[in-house]
Amino acid sequence: MKRLMQYRIACTLTLAVLLIGATALRRGADDGEALKADLFWAQKLSWRAEASCVIAGDSRACRALVPNVLDKTHSRRRTLNFAFDSSGYSAAYLNAIEAVLDPHATERIVLLGITPYSLTPTALATNEFEYRRNWMPFQSMAGLYAKQSLRYVHPMRVDQAYDDLIAAMPKAATNAERDREFHDDGWLAMNRHDGRENVYAEHYRASFEGNTVDSEIVEQLLQYVRDWREKGIRVIAFRPPVSEIILSIENEYSGFDESAFRAAFEAAGGRWIDIEPTRYVTYDGSHVGREEAERFTANLAKNLASLPIERVFADSSN
């Protein structure tokens, strides 16, 4: 025992290295997926003055809009999908959207995917954009790639630790992650086709309990639209694909009045495009898979092309 006391520092450090090594081996495979997601979101956060067209919104816009399809109709346009899961239109997010736009582009467009949830206080308080912005320990992409070498000591949340290390079926929770395909232009393609459109209905209804569309958030968004219009940025909004069940839940419980919002949005200088969001097959009631995303974006591109041309040259003072 006395000898053990003498070597307790060495014992502690050896034990710590063994524990960390064992953990790294146990969760090594899943970590690759987690790291891919980290790199995807971090790359989005690193975009500055890169696009002439920026797609914004929550997970629905993130999965439903394919920049590549939008750019096919316009050779000089560079579109990036800057949507984040559960994202609300906070001032920080709206500022970040503008920062992604290239001030020297001849035409600058912001495409806003409007969902009732994105205009609620909860969406502003907890969302992927804020979470990732606070989380990323590395500021540069070089740092992010350096991080790949640290994948084995990638941090995890407490519940994730339970799934990865203790729960009997650690892989079960990651099936959904395996369906994801991360694209450099910010599109998150989902290779899912299961049409379980009712499965999240109750969850959606509950998400609006004490959390309805906030008039201050709407007014703030409209103020940004006015400011952007003054800067020569075209602002176009649409409702992303959704099943009829979820749409009726949203309309009944969220306090969102689409026609009133549309009128106020257009009065602020924006343009609303109606592309019948319920015409697309969703895999969970509110998100579309790869093929439907391409179909939806192609339709949106057609609508965009039919809009009157409004070419605005960037102000040199920007």
Partner: peptide, 24 residues
């Protein structure tokens, strides 16, 4: 003590590595 203390300290090191929050 001589066994538990190093084990507890090693566990805390493990927590610092894997359960760390965003680096503020």
């Amino acid at each position: 003590g001589p066994v538990l203390q190093p084990a507890a300290l090693a566990m805390l090191i493990w927590c610092c590595v894997y359960l760390r929050g965003p680096g503020n």
